[in-house]
Amino acid sequence: MTQTRTLRRPTGGAVADTLPAIELVGLTKSFGAVRAVRGIDLTIAPGEVVAFLGPNGAGKTTTVDMLLGLSRPDEGSVRVHGLEPGHAVRRGLVAAVMQTGGLLKDLTVEETLRLTASLFADTRPVGEVLERAGIADIADRRVGKCSGGQQQRLRFAMALLPDPELLVLDEPTTGMDVGGRREFWAAIREDASRGRTVVFATHYLEEADAYADRVVLVSHGRVVADGTAAQVKSLVSGRTVRATLPNADQAVLQAIPGVETVEVRGDSVIVSSTDSDAVLRHLLTRTAARDLEVTARGLEDAFISLTSEGAQS
């Protein structure tokens, strides 16, 4: 796949000389025998909105932790706007919205923001971030009494305080209902449109598709694909047709437009294709196939096929 970069920041030609917002080189990290990250190289330019997409356990959170300086890589380097993550954090260049925790239940929403603001050299006004995160109406509520979605928007407001160049979101909508999820993303999108670099880890393809310019697929601690949302979507948009067909002619099936792989297992044949209708039409009109079954190919299948391809090459 080709790597594509959609730059939203309206700085035009100057972008070429810019330091990358994120530069990960040869990153690895193991926890005992578990190799969580097995060599990730990734460069993200300022202004990009990038989804870090992968199934649970792919190494997304481990990578995010290293990006934020919360853990140190075994090998490789991390640079955020040319700085070590810890330095970038202290300067308010990078801020993050973490998955869970990280809030004091006995403070109010506004107090949490005032406390956080007091820790940085320069911040946006508390009132402004309350508005932008859509929680101005619950400013006086105790954090412990806020819903999961409200707490997440508070984390977002906290992240906005230092006016970071880079915003990192780790599975930000886990545990939110559909409405909360939509509102949360509306706020993020609105913010990204101002030119901030946004990187979010997610295991929802729909989120990556709807909100990212660029999707980086991670599986088993490696980047397995990197491209536009449309490209990645096409990888996983196909369907699998399974049928009982003794003595199937593999070559003929392979020649049907849209067919990617044909697998024969005894009397069964499994065809994955981006145009399952054509496959079905062929099987029903030209062959004695029976017991036809069509299943949508999910993200997990795409990961499996991408990872096994990677292993073969």
């Binding site: 700085t11 300067r91 403070l107 406390l115 940085f120």
Partner: peptide, 29 residues
């Protein structure tokens, strides 16, 4: 670019961010 300038202009707070607002809010808690 603006981002790089911002990186240089952004400062690190004094005293490791020890400040009176923090003490006041902690006490209130």
């Amino acid at each position: 670019t603006t981002a790089d300038l911002a990186a240089n202009e952004r400062s690190v707070p004094r005293f490791g961010s020890f400040n009176s607002t923090l003490v006041r809010l902690e006490l209130r808690r």
